[in-house]
Amino acid sequence: MIALTVDKLSFAYGSKQALDNVSFSVASGECAILLGPNGAGKSTLFSLITRLYDSREGQIALCGFNLKQHSRQALAKLGVVFQQTTLDPDLSVTQNLRYHAALHGIGSKAADIRIQDELERLNMFERRHEKVRQLNGGHKRRVEIARALLHKPSLLLLDEPTVGLDMPSREAIVSHVHDLVRHQQLAVLWATHLIDEIAADDSVILLHRGKIQAQGQLPALLANSGCDNVEHLFKHYTQGVGR
C-alpha cells in the first residue's frame, strides 16, 4: 500500500520558490530518506505534509486520503517527530503521552496500555513519571517517537530527529525505526543531512534547491551516478562533484 503520495508539489514564499514540481511516494514497509543540505526545502515539504499550510499547486495524499479534501482522515494516519523537541518540559512523560492520546481520541484506559507498550519498546517505561525537563536529549527523542507511534500511524515523518544527539542515542533511534519498518510495515519519511544514518536497503530522495535531483533505491542510485558511497552521491547532486 502507498502510504504517502506527493504529486507535482510546488510552493513559494512570496517570490522565493521553496519547492518546485516535487513528486514521490513512500510505500508501507519502506524507509525513504529525504536527503538534502540546509535550505533544500525539507522543512517546507514537512510543513505541507503535516498541513501547517496548504500548497496551491500539486497534491498530497496519505493512505489514499487527499490532505486538503480529507485532512482529518489523512492526518489520523500520520505520526510526526519534528526537528525541535515538542514535548512539554513541565509535564511528566506519561502526562505528555496522555495529552497526545487525547488529541487522537484515545480514551484513558486504552492510552495507558499503548503508552506502556511504546515506552517498554523504547526502554523508557521506568522513566514514565519523570518530568521531561529531567531527561537527556536522547531520551526525549525516544519519548517523541513513542508519542508519534501512540495512535498507530501508517506513516512516520521524522524531521532530523537525531540532530544534536550522541552516537549511541543516534544508533538506537536509527535501529529502532528500521525495526519498525521491517516488522510493522510502517512507512517512514526521514529527513536528514547525516548520511551515515542511511541503511543499504533504504530508498533515497535527494532534494536540492526545492527540486528532486534523484530518487530510488540506494544501490541503484550509486550505480547510475557512478558514485561509490552516499557521501560522494550527495556531493555529486548538491555540489556538482563528479559531474
Binding site: 503535516t50 498541513r51 501547517l52 485532512s71 482529518r72 482522515q73 489523512a74 492526518l75 489520523a76 500520520l78 510526526v80 519534528f82 526537528q83 525541535q84 523537541t85 515538542t86 514535548l87 512539554d88 497526545h100 488529541l103 487522537h104
Partner: peptide, 14 residues
C-alpha cells in the same frame, strides 16, 4: 516557534 503548537495543529481535528 518551538514546535509544540505544530503538534497540536497536526492532530486530526478541525
Amino acid at each position: 516557534e518551538m514546535g509544540s503548537m505544530r503538534m497540536l495543529m497536526v492532530c486530526p481535528l478541525p
